[in-house]
């Protein structure tokens, strides 16, 4: 009957967003008088799996078959459904991501389970089971009651403040049946910018827009990001102009991010861009135009020349160290 949390593994470690999902799942387990079990697939470090205990998991089911190391939503969903059956779980938690949604969706159809994606808070359980979710790309929320016996919640970043303990989870080997049909796709190539910090995982993002005036001017922005340990992003025009790679594009049709701190440099703040960043806890806007609409969505603003301001900020960050 445990709450089952599906975690994503990156280079052997559990992703930070997944650890948040573990903490969320552990809290739901407490609310429902049960324990939290983590499901981890593919190659993973034992220490990293045990560490999910610090976020409230008591047990980790680890299906270590190397066939499961490369992300495969078809196989993952099937394994998840098998784990749900074995554990007799009624509540399944995943972190919101392209993979999380895909796995949750297919598992939902297998298990005939009600699914809600984009959950922003702990559920309200009072006879009914109600969750709050983000809709209209952060412009509104909706409460949804889940009525099915098995419930799948895909939770957003920052849905629950995780606190760490020193507990360790016990690891249990899990040997699901893998179906050939889930491994029919032929992976032609995988390009990963492995050295870069992923935008969806980053706590701080420094992002540039057309106000940066050209790809050759990015260094001061990269310096600030480096000093802050931040990931870098950009607006749509910047990626359309090929000033920055497409996977840095943040916005309605790009990546949606929810960092603790988002610093926008020379981005006016078109509504399509705001749609990608309104999950951020704090927004800083630096723009030479005091009328830039982004200031309305910002917590802190500086009107001025980004090329003068960025080095000052970098120096101030370095002075803190």
């Amino acid at each position: 009957m445990s709450v089952l949390i599906f975690v994503e593994i990156d280079n052997g470690s559990v992703k930070k967003t997944s650890l948040e999902a573990v903490a969320y799942g552990a809290e739901v387990a407490k609310m429902t008088g049960t324990t939290a079990t983590v499901l981890a697939l593919g190659k993973a470090d034992a220490a990293a799996l045990e560490q999910t205990g610090a976020f409230g998991a008591s047990k980790v089911l680890h299906a270590s078959d190397d066939k499961l190391t490369h992300e495969n939503s078809l196989a993952y969903a099937d394994v998840l459904a098998q784990a749900v059956t074995q554990e007799d779980s009624k509540i399944i938690i995943l972190a919101k991501s392209g993979l999380g949604d895909a796995v949750a969706a297919r598992a939902s159809a297998k298990l005939k389970a009600g699914i809600v994606s984009g959950v922003t808070e702990l559920p309200v359980i009072n006879g009914n089971f109600t969750v709050k979710r983000s809709i209209f790309t952060g412009k509104a929320f909706s409460n949804v009651e889940i009525k099915s016996d098995i419930k799948i919640l895909v939770v957003q970043k920052n849905a629950f403040e995780a606190t760490e303990s020193s507990e360790k989870a016990t690891i249990e080997a899990f040997s699901p049946v893998l179906r050939d049909q889930d491994f029919q796709a032929n992976i032609v190539s995988v390009e990963k910018a492995s050295s870069e910090l992923s935008l969806t995982e980053a706590n701080i993002i420094v992002s540039g827009g057309r106000g940066m005036k050209g790809p050759e001017n990015w260094q001061p922005l990269l310096d600030l990001a480096g000093a802050l340990g931040a990931a870098t992003g950009c607006s749509k025009p910047v990626s359309d102009l090929d000033w920055r790679p497409h996977h840095e594009h943040i916005g309605q049709t790009g990546i949606k991010v929810a960092p603790n701190l988002y610093i926008a440099c020379g981005i006016s703040g078109a509504i399509q861009h705001l749609a990608g960043v309104n999950g951020s806890k704090y927004i800083v806007v630096i723009n030479k135009d005091p009328e830039a609409p982004f200031f309305k969505a910002a917590d802190y603003g500086i009107v001025g020349d980004v090329f003068e301001i960025l080095p000052k900020l970098t120096k101030a960050v370095e002075d803190l160290k």
Partner: peptide
């Protein structure tokens, strides 16, 4: 039907943006 829609809500309005003079940019940090 596995879910039932409840009511909607809007996010709390954003507080005013705190402006920092450009010549004191380091104050932001």
């Amino acid at each position: 039907e596995f879910t039932a829609p409840g009511n909607y809500s809007l996010p709390a309005p954003k507080g005013a943006c705190k402006m920092i003079p450009a010549d004191q940019a380091e104050m932001l940090i």
